[in-house]
Write a protein that binds this DNA or RNA. Structure first.
Lengths: 160, 160
DNA sequence: TATTGTTATACTCTATAACTATA
DNA sequence: TATAGTTATAGAGTATAACAATA
């Protein structure tokens, strides 16, 4: 593997990783009656505590309508409740139920176990190399995203 | 970063990579009027040549119904056509149009450029470390998926 | 009988726009 | 007037089941 094509092969591997990880997570979440999007909302509640739907929409990068749907589903299945906001009668505070909290904690434990399963067999030097490369790739990716966003807004996304 | 938590931090980074890459690809494909699923179907056609919908469904790991929908969308937008199967009048051969072929080739070129953008700045030793770690993680992930599938079919998924 | 692909139906995630109740 | 969240509507991906045409 010499020359430029090693970059392509590496990207192919990264994309394979994306697919495998996504499938694996989807399957694991389905066992608890969750989807990726609903788990994401639960994760935000763990991080932020009881939150308005507006705050969740901003945190998750989705529309208010989407949060309404996700909250409906999580409420029906017993993961969250809508509580009265103490000072704003327009707003609801989405709040984890005991069950929601318990599942969230279990998911965190499972993720810890999973990370161990993935990395524990890797020699320390190689692990460090992997993490170093990952840092680089993430940084590049964020730069490229920022450039793309800037280009999009300059072209006619923001000046229309 | 010592102890077990370095594994968790690494997994967090990998998951961040998954999100960034997925978003980036979604945005890039949208510029050509494609979604991930439709691009996946196009990619299978590039690999396999004109194919029946049944073959595509098996290759993509989705239902026949899903391929009908994806093919409908790609046909309406001019990426593929349904051609007569020479020997089986039940089946259609999904076939790339000239436009579909051209877009597929462009996507491949863009992916090559993208891989260069991601990795070219990485010192060779660190790149090799990254790829080595990636190999390990992919292998572990495949083992774990196989185990999960075996456990599922033993529990009552296959013996019902 | 078995298979290919469709129609019928349903669920999830996503979005924009109009609207209600409140700030 | 502006904001929070809903309803209305729509499009995409996904699935199962029933059905048509053909093997």
């Amino acid at each position: 593997m010499t020359g430029e094509s090693r970059f392509e092969a590496a990207l192919d591997q990264v994309l394979a990783l994306v697919v495998l990880l996504s499938d694996d997570m989807t399957r694991a979440l389905a066992r608890d009656g969750l989807t990726s999007s609903r788990a994401h909302l639960i994760w935000e509640l763990v991080q932020r505590g009881p939150s308005t739907q507006r705050a969740l929409a901003d945190a998750m990068g989705v529309s208010a309508r989407t949060v309404t749907g996700l909250t409906d589903g999580l409420e029906e299945t017993g993961f969250v409740t809508r509580e009265k906001h103490p000072s704003d009668r327009r707003a609801a505070l989405v709040t984890l139920t005991a069950h929601g909290q318990a599942i969230a904690e279990r998911l965190q434990r499972e993720q810890r176990t999973f990370s161990h399963d993935l990395f524990a067999g890797l020699p320390r030097a190689q692990f460090d190399g992997f993490v170093g490369g990952l840092d680089h790739v993430l940084a590049r990716l964020r730069e490229l995203s920022a450039q793309a966003a800037a280009a999009a807004s300059a072209t006619g996304d923001g000046d229309a």
